[in-house]
Amino acid sequence: MVAINKEIVTLDPHLIGVDWGSTCLRVFLIGSYGEVLATRTSAQGSSSMNGSAWAYEQSLEQLAGDWLQEYPDIKVLACGMVGSKHGWLEVPYVACPSDVNAIAARVMSVKGVDQRRFDIVPGMAYRPANGVPDVMRGEETQIAGVLSLRPEASQRSCIILPGTHSKWVQIEQGKVTAFATHMTGELFAILRQHSVLGRLMPSQQNELDPIAFLRGVEDARQGMYLGFAHQLFAVRTLGLMEMMPPSSLADYLSGLLIGHEIQAGLGWRLAAGLEQAPLILVGDPSLCAHYAQALSHCGVLNASILSNTAPVGLWAIERATAGVHATKLAHKVNV
């Protein structure tokens, strides 16, 4: 199934941007100033491609083939899992700290059957001196979009990207200097669908129960000494003892998971000296609103929200890529 927004192509498009996640494919027709002229989505995520170059090209053709035909010389730039080990072309991670120019310098190209060139954005890797490595693919492009939309955040800021694998990102002098991944969304899905905790929950989730959600956030804040695994079991016992209705248990679980993520993230932010720096939530507006509510409950009132910044990020990276190519050409001429 393909979803298409109202297309308002009045100017010559400058770029076809592609955000290729594990479960979803999004394409954007982007103008010369980064404006999104049209958006299309499908369920042809990278997990359904099985690492087949032909499958990737065919999926993109099905979703944006008319754009490719109408604008034969337009550039195509893709980010996300399309550049992973099982993607269309594996593009090595750029090392953190990095900025948009470092990302642009590591963009790689693959040619389709008709010799059209498709450019793919690298992911980003963070290897702390005294910790385990962390990686992202796709979020680096959203971050580039944030810094393009909010230049004041380039100096010092903390960016949160909620989702299946939430990212907390530190920004200094226009560079991603550190980031940490929390598997909050994936844990919620697994626990709700495949654990004993989900047995008392209704199959269809109703509207958010804000009281149950904030109780979970508060219990995460107040009861960390009991241990996360112990607190999780409360999702079951609160239902068994009829202290919380079944319809509220999923929201309590969500609050508990998000609450633990926020407690860890705020401590990490404080240790980095970014407590007074801008805090920006990026992603699905509804999910970001839940995070903003939880942050507010924990005393953080200054978080702002941006929706999908991937199109602007793709545009910013493409512009930086053009600058990289110009610099290389000038160097060859001078030599």
Rank of each mutant, 00 (worst) to 15 (best):
L68W: 09
Q69P: 03
V121R: 07
V169C: 13
G185S: 05
L161W: 02
H194L: 06
V82S: 05
A178M: 02
P162D: 12
I171P: 07
S166D: 07
L187W: 04
R150A: 04
V135E: 03
A153I: 00
V135P: 06
G163I: 08
A180P: 04
Y71S: 00
S166G: 09
P97D: 12
G131T: 10
P97Y: 01
I74A: 05
P97W: 12
L147V: 03
L161T: 11
S154R: 15
E172G: 00
V82C: 07
D119I: 03
M124Q: 15
V94N: 00
P122I: 10
G80H: 05
P72V: 10
P122Y: 01
A153S: 13
P133K: 11
Q155H: 10
I74R: 09
E90S: 08
A105N: 13
K111P: 01
S98A: 15
N130L: 15
L149S: 06
T164Y: 01
R192T: 02
D99Y: 01
T141P: 02
G163Y: 06
A153N: 12
E139S: 09
S98H: 08
D73R: 14
L89R: 15
Q173N: 14
G163K: 11
N130T: 15
A180T: 07
K75H: 12
K167W: 08
R127W: 05
S148N: 10
A95L: 13
K175A: 08
A64E: 06
E152S: 13
E172M: 10
P92S: 09
L161Q: 08
V76I: 15
A125V: 15
G83A: 10
A125G: 00
R116Q: 13
R106D: 13
S109N: 14
A153E: 08
V94D: 02
Q142K: 12
S98L: 14
T184D: 03
Q193R: 14
V176R: 03
P128Y: 11
G123W: 12
N101D: 14
H182I: 01
I103A: 04
A129P: 01
T164C: 02
V100R: 10
P97C: 13
K167C: 09
A64S: 11
E152R: 07
A64Q: 02
A129C: 09
Q69M: 10
